[in-house]
Design a protein around this nucleic acid. Structure first.
Lengths: 243, 243
DNA sequence: CGGCGCAAGATCATGTAGGAATCTGAATAA
DNA sequence: TTATTCAGATTCCTACATGATCTTGCGCCG
């Protein structure tokens, strides 16, 4: 008896892609509770595929830091970022991205100003027309904007290392609440302007400022949730990085 | 006939660890030619296990950037680093590691000076006693030394991002030739000293200098190999399948 | 009477074997 | 020389067996 019940159109192939999208969406939407264990058999049966593609997907998700693996105990979803983890993430961004903005602010064909402007126009239009959930679009724009600058910096290793952190993905997962997009877009515009003008110092500083502000916004949203876990035993005062 | 020929002692489990070590060693030693495709069936039979653990290992190796995956075509070993890739890698290190050294050079319990000194003593002893292949030990020491400093910097995200690049692994793969360890160890000692003295500026600069010198050494070794493959721009070179 | 330890059952991860769809590569015909 | 077809090889998925791990319930001790 065929237990298939979904994504049966192209039954021969592309099973793994569908499963990957489905599981990723489940984790991001929060359908699977953060920190909960994942039952391979249950997932495979609910998606109508065998266990092998599910395992493959889980291993890929482990690379995305969306699940963790314990030998002999299987996979669990990673817990949500706490404040120290969020700070570490943004310190990393503060280390990498201003450098990338500086590297991109050169008078060469690699200068990404045109692409960035196009991206900004697109998101402005999208925010005007779209009435409902703008968060999806906003996060997608943010991802593309920063990735474009990273790409223009011309260092595949740095680009890959940054992509591996999946910072947008995790911040997206953290905050289902609405974020004011206007401020973000304005800061992006400032960065773009400095890059278009080929002013490395200004571009670096604008990007650093943008990341600092962004962290402040996220941390503020975090404060709202601090009530749920009020005992916050922060260790020694965290050092702030400067360059 | 039983095709088993290795790691048959505990046949019940722990297959994946053995397979991972074996394949990783094969790639690093160069038994599998860089760029060649990997036949899952052949590997599974030669190691005496089924295809599933081999596949799992390949997925993990993909995370290590030792193999690449093409849907429908399977896995291939990644080609060796060329000079631009090596430069990108060291630019990334130059971005991250001096920052880490600066962060570690603080007067706190997290200061890694003691651990670094221990590591340096160990490698000095090891080099005196070991007569044969010191390269293994040297690379292992280098890995531990830099990892220790990264760890002391106290940022898990940066640490993870750096670990994901597996820079030592790839440089190891690149240069089977002997490298003079004395210079490396001396530079390490300088870095350690600055960190022990809690002088962030000096530590940062010492680490930066070390990385610049290290790149120069690798690039020099690279020059020596340029003769072997002078015409390297041909399109699709004969793909040879090796297992 | 309540807490602790132990053991049997159940659950689940891990590995094995085999089959179907697909890709590779070369020989053949236009 | 170029497009097409066909056989061989190989990936990818399904289905199942096995061993480890977690849970539940009972008996024992305090």
């Amino acid at each position: 008896m065929p237990p298939r019940q979904s994504s049966d159109a192209s039954k021969g192939k592309a099973a793994v892609s569908d499963v990957y999208g489905a599981m990723r969406a489940s984790i991001l939407k929060g359908d699977i509770e953060p920190g909960a264990r994942i039952n391979i058999d249950a997932v495979s049966r609910s998606l109508g595929v065998s266990q092998t593609p599910v395992r493959e997907v889980l291993q890929r998700l482990e690379g995305d830091n969306l699940v963790v693996y314990s030998p002999g105990r299987g996979y669990s979803t990673t817990p949500l970022l706490d404040l120290p983890a969020l700070r570490s993430l943004f310190e990393f961004r503060l280390l990498v991205e201003p450098w990338a903005a500086r590297s991109a602010a050169v008078d060469r064909l690699a200068n990404p100003a045109a692409a960035l402007e196009k991206e900004l126009s697109a998101i402005r239009n999208s925010l005007k027309t779209t009435s409902g959930d703008a968060r999806q679009d906003l996060v997608a724009h943010d991802t593309r904007f920063h990735d474009t600058i990273l790409l223009a910096a011309g260092n595949p290793v740095v680009q890959h290392a940054f992509a591996q952190t999946h910072c947008h993905l995790h911040t997206f997962r953290l905050y289902p609440a609405d974020i004011d997009g206007a401020i973000t877009i304005a800061e992006h515009a400032t960065v773009r302007e400095a890059i278009a003008a080929c002013q490395p110092d200004r571009a670096e500083e604008a990007m650093a400022e943008h990341i600092r502000n962004s962290f402040a916004r996220f941390a503020q949203a975090f404060e709202g949730k601090a009530d749920l876990a009020p005992l916050e035993s922060d260790g020694p005062p965290k050092r702030h990085i400067v360059t």
